[in-house]
Amino acid sequence: MKKWIKVATAAALGVAMSASAANAAWEKVVIATEGAYPPFNEIDANGKAIGFDVDIANALCESAGLTCEIVTQDWDGMIPGLLAKKYDAIIAQMSITEERKRSIDFTNYYSASPAVFVGKEGMEVNAYADGEVVEDALDGMVVGVQRSTTHSSFLEDNFPGVEIRLYDTQDNALLDLVAGRIDVTLADSGVLLKWVESDDAAGYAFVSDAFAPEEWFGAGEGIGIRKEDQDLKEIFNKALEDILADGTYEEINKKYFTSVNLHSR
């Protein structure tokens, strides 16, 4: 009797699942971004997500004929939220790393900007030079970095003796940099470039060369997708090729960074 119920349930589930698989032609896709990583993603005065990532997301959706909804999610909960199906894709400057690939999958990279240190003008922090980590480059400094990022992994792995402060957002790390409570911060050069050019950053500048060793920084930033959604991954990869080919990507790139090509790796 019990066995019969099991078989029946399995059969019913099977039917239901194949039906939904046929329907899941991805008409509507919910995309998550962080909203605290300007100019890649931030929240404007009306509470709407804007920025490079959002423009890319919209361009991809338009190109693929999808209806997309952009939601914001704290960085910490980005991957758990995807796995819990709160949204279907992450477009939030997430680097493609082996560690993350254990739980989610990525499309091809859609941007690649290296990491750089920012500190007081005149400092020199060469923590990574000639393809090698310089272990004593940060000695005696307090370094601020955003939690759960490739940048924080890089610091934790290579500078065990250095005091590393983990922030919820890069914005907060920059606040503390100006307040003098950290000496330098490590982040994405695209983000820091925008900040260094702003009025808040008087007296602060890039204090290292840009670097991106693949062991820690992965192969650029991709769109995060659940492993089982291979069809969605294909849709995005195809759309990405299309917007790169028809100049849409370049247009968005220029809107935010006039001097940097974000797809040049």
């Binding site: 758990p80 560690e99 739980s103 601020g144 990022t149 922030y167």
Partner: peptide
């Protein structure tokens, strides 16, 4: 943990960041 102190919850968040095992 929201102001960069790694107490117990901060440690858990750090582990999640590393392992993606929330």
């Amino acid at each position: 943990s929201t102001v960069t102190l790694i107490e117990l919850t901060g440690a858990a968040r750090k582990i999640v960041a590393r392992t993606a095992l929330p």
